[in-house]
Design a binder for these strands. Structure first.
Length: 545
RNA sequence: GUUUCGGUAGCUCAGUUGGAUAGAGCAACGGCCUUCUAAGCCGUCGGUCGGGGGUUCGAAUCCCUCCCGGAACGCCA
């Protein structure tokens, strides 16, 4: 039973009967409890059309409409023209057995029916460790993917491995330099190379395996392959520990091997989107809103960065997804128009690719900003962070923020592991119920998840808890359609708050067996929804804390 | 200079297809543990929504303009 739908259809019926043309009827949950449980501003919208005071329209509308009295305990008009509704919270009792019967079904939607999304995120180069920026991408992309799945979309999560470009040559050269250094040869790591400690470690490993062999041989191919393989393996490991997995790991080198880039270029040439100038091949991206055309084959015959990336997206298109989503760092925003242009050329649809930009994370320590530096190899790695604070606070923290907001991460705060971190609040709510259940058992009470009729679930705290439970599907829908996974952490917080407030308000394991049984069934449902929502942002629901 | 993201409470952030008295967490302050986990609850304090104009019944939200900060502007990746 959906209350919003009931309101909308009732009003629609009235307006249609009166032959009034009406705009979309919006029903929302007011911020202020004194405005009821639901409200609509339709009378204000109609004021323009009907040329009558909104207050009067609202009153007449309420008079003429037949709102179901078993759902609504009050329908009232408020200045300047809102119609507010108070609902009988007993209608939410149905939710309890429904949730308890199939916990993961609750909030599961079908709005993505028939759609298959491909979502690409992180896609860090295999040239070093994952840092804090990648962590944000991983947390955001994974949460979004899970929310989309929950909303009924089919989703493929994908990681593009840049193992074909010039940066891999730099990687090999960097490892080689560290390798030589280990033998006392004074050779600096190239200026544009990779300076992190993980590169040194790799060189040491290689020496253990092959000794001084590459003092006499060039070994570039060996260093490339070894470096990419082992850095990729550790990326995967870090991500897995961060509770992020991918369905597809797509290697750029595969595009070269299978001649896919030439193939893609031919498609673009055949469709007349290219031309030659100054000895280079250009793509007419300005046709699709880019500020100028872009070179895709340089005059020396090599490709620019975007060329294999276009071929990669062409491959994704060929796999039949209905939508491609790329989650990119905000520093790539200038790259987006040309990529979208290329995809429009290949797919014939300008809206095929959605790009979600993540803004930079500013890291603070002792009140000072820590700058990442490629040259010194200094950066805060995901692995270090997880070792110090654990996966959950980091995931929750990133999931709390909207994707395209600039954000600050205060390390002193993050490392504190105190209640300043809101993830504990949510996990505690879940653990609290678990603890209560253990306690109930020792007192001889059974949690009965099949309980379906209730007579004692009333009072402000319980009704609020039921109301918040009822809002879960709406939260999922909004998070999925607007691509705002932080809606989920907001929901989690509201539910945890409702739980804590109720818990503090009364002794649940009282002497009244009926009351106890009904409350335990309610809490069983709350626990299940908390867990489901936490899972959407990749956070564990703990049984104990 | 152009493009782009941002500027909302002391701090970190929601709210931005125009709606009710602008919200939350943290911090601060005051209460609540002989009773199911106090990582909790209840309450208080806290705002010229960067500035200024405009549009209208109504603007944090739309338009114009200015100020401040991040980022991108390559036949680099």
């Amino acid at each position: 039973m959906n209350v919003k739908t009931a309101i909308i259809t009732t009003i629609e019926k009235t307006l249609t009967r009166q032959s009034i043309d009406y705009p979309e009827i919006e029903v929302e949950v007011p911020n202020d409890k004194s405005h009821g449980d639901f409200s609509t501003n339709i009378a204000m919208k109609l004021a323009r059309v009907l040329r009558k005071p909104p207050l009067k329209i609202a009153e007449e509308l309420v008079q003429a409409s037949d709102f179901d009295q078993s759902i609504f305990t009050a329908v009232f008009v408020a200045r300047p023209g809102f119609i507010n509704f108070t609902v009988n919270k007993a209608i939410y009792h149905d939710l309890i057995p429904r949730i308890n019967d199939a916990p993961s079904d609750y909030g599961t939607l079908t709005i993505g029916k028939g759609e298959h999304y491909n979502i690409e995120f992180v896609s860090a180069n295999p040239t070093g460790s994952l840092h804090i920026g990648h962590a944000r991408g991983a947390a955001a992309g994974d949460a979004l993917a899970r929310v989309l799945v929950k909303a009924g979309y089919q989703v493929t999560k994908e990681f593009y491995v840049n193992d074909g470009g010039n940066q891999i040559n730099q990687l090999a050269a960097s490892i080689k330099a560290r390798y030589n250094q280990a033998f006392g040869i004074n050779q600096a790591v190239p200026e544009d190379g990779y300076h992190g400690p993980e590169i040194k470690k790799l060189a040491d490993e290689i020496i253990k395996e092959v000794g001084d062999r590459f003092l006499h041989e060039e070994g570039v191919e060996f260093f490339k392959a070894y470096g990419v393989d082992s850095l990729l393996a550790s990326l995967k490991e870090d991500l897995a520990q961060f509770n992020v997995t991918f369905d597809v790991w797509f290697k750029e080198s595969q595009l070269y091997k299978e001649n896919r880039i030439e193939e893609t270029l031919n498609v673009l040439k055949d469709r007349g989107y290219t031309y030659e100038e100054d000895g280079a091949l250009w793509l007419k991206t300005s046709l699709y809103g880019d500020e100028k055309d872009r070179v895709i084959v340089k005059s020396d015959g090599t490709y620019t960065y975007i060329t294999p990336d276009i071929a990669y997206h062409y491959d994704k298109l060929s796999r039949g997804y209905t939508k491609l989503i790329d989650i990119l760092g905000g520093d790539h925003h200038g790259y987006v128009p040309r990529l979208k242009a290329a995809i429009a050329m290949m797919s014939g649809q300008e809206e095929m690719l959605d790009v979600e930009l993540l803004q930079m994370v500013k890291v603070l320590q002792d009140g000072q900003e820590i700058k990442m530096s490629k040259r010194s190899g200094k950066s805060i790695t995901l692995a270090d962070l997880m070792a110090e604070v654990g996966k959950d606070p980091i995931r929750y923290f990133f999931a709390m923020r909207s994707l395209n907001t600039h954000m600050d991460l205060d390390l002193d705060l993050a490392l504190k592991e105190s209640n300043e971190n809101p993830v504990f609040y949510a996990q505690y709510a879940h653990a609290r119920i678990a603890s209560l259940f253990r306690q109930a058992e020792t007192k001889g009470y059974q949690v009965d998840p099949t309980l379906s009729t209730f007579s004692t679930l009333n009072g402000e705290k319980i009704e609020y808890l039921l109301t918040v439970l009822s809002e879960y599907p709406d939260a999922i829908e909004e998070a999925a359609t607007k691509r705002i996974p932080h809606k989920i952490t907001h929901y989690i917080h509201r539910l945890a708050q409702a739980l804590h407030s109720f818990y503090a308000d009364e002794i649940i394991l009282s002497e009244d067996a009926v009351k106890v049984r009904e409350r335990l069934a309610l809490l069983h449902a709350v626990k299940a929804v908390l867990k489901d929502a936490l899972t959407l942002v990749g956070v564990d629901a703990k049984e104990r804390m």
